[in-house]
């Protein structure tokens, strides 16, 4: 049984290897151990190819580790868990479905009845500021709006953990910042645990309770920084001295390792 004392997510000595097309072994993640407590907003930052996405896929249960164990609520994760919601870099909505039907989509995949959750879907769409767009098709929305829909879609089945893989990476800088604060507002209201992967150190510090810094080839955790900046965070947060200190620490960790290889 899940014990209340166990962290929501824990990885113990997790290694993941891939065999490439040419037959060589690539170690995407090497002996990663970490624990994530409930309601934490954790960002994972690092250069491309450092295994950030692999880390999320392992926690999402859509890929098994080569070595080590991944636990969710203290239980070993053997298959995808319904307690996990995923948001990808691209919104990947179903182009033939309206916003409303896209939000309900996971319920159908889970084999749940959609009727009892329809009000919740409307509320979520309202929450991300898309009220009035319920019947619009994805092609009628901007990239930022589509990504808002994909966040609603991840929240509709009330997962405990939200895994976000560079969700704002494909958006322009202004939309990106808007959505970051929007996400913090939603997180504040819904109180989820979030694992958020990003390239951007600024984004990582701005959002997080804790930043995990990774390096590439093989992907390892090199730094784990609690971000003690006060909440709520605002657009001015990133101009404070404390913020700059955090960003500097993380940046030096990322680049020191990058130069090392």
């Amino acid at each position: 049984m899940a014990s209340a004392a166990a962290p929501l997510v824990s990885l113990e000595g997790v290694t993941r290897r891939f065999v490439t097309r040419s037959g060589t072994d690539v170690t995407a993640l090497q002996e990663v151990s970490l624990a994530i407590e409930r309601d934490q907003f954790v960002t994972v930052v690092g250069p491309s190819g450092c295994g950030k996405t692999t880390l999320l896929k392992l926690v999402g249960g859509i890929m098994p580790p080569t070595l080590g164990t991944v636990r969710l609520n203290g239980e070993v994760l053997a298959r995808p868990s319904r307690k996990v919601g995923m948001v990808f870099q691209r919104p990947v909505l179903l182009p033939w479905r309206s916003v409303f039907e896209n939000v309900l989509f996971p319920l159908e995949m889970l084999g749940w009845r959609t009727a009892p959750r329809k009000d919740e879907a409307r509320r979520l769409i309202e929450l991300v500021g898309l009220g009035g767009f319920e019947n619009a098709l994805p092609s009628e929305l901007s990239g930022g709006m589509q990504q808002r829909v994909s966040i609603c879609r991840a929240l509709i089945y009330e997962p405990e953990l939200l895994l976000m893989d560079e969700p704002f990476g494909a958006l322009d800088a202004m939309t990106r910042e808007d959505l970051s604060f929007e996400l913090l507002r939603i997180w504040n209201e819904k109180r989820k645990t979030v694992m958020f992967v990003t390239h951007s150190i600024t984004e990582a510090v701005l959002l997080a309770d804790r930043v995990i810094v990774m390096t590439a080839r093989p992907g390892r955790v090199v730094m784990d920084v609690p971000i003690t900046l006060p909440r709520p965070r605002t657009p001015d947060t990133e101009f404070t001295a404390e913020f700059k200190d955090f960003a500097k620490t993380i940046k030096s960790a990322v680049y020191a390792e990058a130069r090392g290889c």
């Binding site: 999402g60 319904r82 996990v84 995923m86 989509f105």
Partner: peptide, 20 residues
């Protein structure tokens, strides 16, 4: 990624076929 999403929801092959 859409298929990964359905996998993360542990959706059956039949559901993924008809709905996606």
């Amino acid at each position: 990624e859409l298929l990964e999403l359905t996998r993360s929801l542990d959706a059956s092959t039949a559901r993924v076929f008809w709905c996606v």
